[in-house]
Design a protein around this nucleic acid. Structure first.
Lengths: 145, 145
DNA sequence: CAGGAGATGTAGCGTAAGCTACAAGTCTGT
DNA sequence: ACAGACTTGTAGCTTACGCTACATCTCCTG
């Protein structure tokens, strides 16, 4: 086994954050979707979410169980899914983020289709500082150009 | 159970892509790290990666097993980790992406620290179209302001 | 050249997220 | 009011990615 001089360090927390982000990503996607579906159709069923995310209803069930455990939703067997106060807050927050990132990408000149796709992936990994910059940029472009 | 008029659709592929992205994220992070460590110190050991990502050496082992299975690295018991041609290509590609995103965030006016943190999370979710726009923007800012 | 320190490997566990197949509930139309 | 369609729930499997504890290997040093 090779060995080496002074074992350099680089204990970066970036990856720690990335891991944490992943844990909450799904929760955010779900509450956002639930809010949107309820708004559009009056209530949200398991099947609606399964369709939305293109996964089986089983995966949705388990996700909902976690969301319930974490206090974001309320749901009873064979009943529709409701957001709790905490879940609603998270949904609003997520939707805001999503919109800002989307607007930003458009302002950057990215095509509508790609902007929609990328926003989905990016929204969970943007810090509030960067989000502010993105918002400023989007507004700037909107008022100027 | 509530029912509803015409069951609306929205089978979006965004989440499908996000899922796919996640699958390759770790691979990209690893090959990028391996390339960097080899470049800096001559070879890359399991411990180096464990330190880098702040995970146990066991997690690194398993990740390496997957990378090996997928043809990105070569490694023999108790020996250092090498990138294959395919792994090197992926590493270069990832590093490019990373750099562009980082430069872009700096150009956007994000603080150095946040830019480094966010680049880590964002790099895996940026399409090539958006990446081109980011690159153009960064270059623009660099030459103008 | 023998030990011990440090690196690596293995066993076994946990959670998250996906699946299929099957069971059970609910709703709607006749 | 009941049959069939649709929805929801449950059992049990898979893979990825974390972990601790313990075993083994390597390398350096006395």
């Amino acid at each position: 086994m090779p060995s080496r001089s002074p074992s350099r360090r680089q204990a970066d927390n970036e990856h720690l954050r990335t891991r944490r982000d992943h844990a909450s990503e799904l929760a955010e996607d779900y509450v956002e979707a639930i809010a949107e579906i309820v708004e559009r159709t009056g209530f949200c069923r398991v099947t609606d979410l399964a369709e939305r995310f293109a996964v089986s209803h089983v995966s949705v069930n388990r996700a909902i169980a976690r969301l319930k455990r974490d206090g974001f939703v309320e749901a009873h067997p064979y009943g529709p899914v409701h957001l709790t106060a905490s879940g609603s807050r998270l949904a609003l927050h997520s939707r805001d983020r999503h919109r800002i990132v989307l607007e930003f990408l458009r302002a950057l000149g990215v095509s509508e289709k790609t902007a929609a796709l990328d926003a989905e992936g990016l929204e969970h990994h943007v810090s509030s500082e960067t989000l502010r910059k993105m918002k400023a940029f989007a507004v700037d472009r909107a008022t100027e150009g």
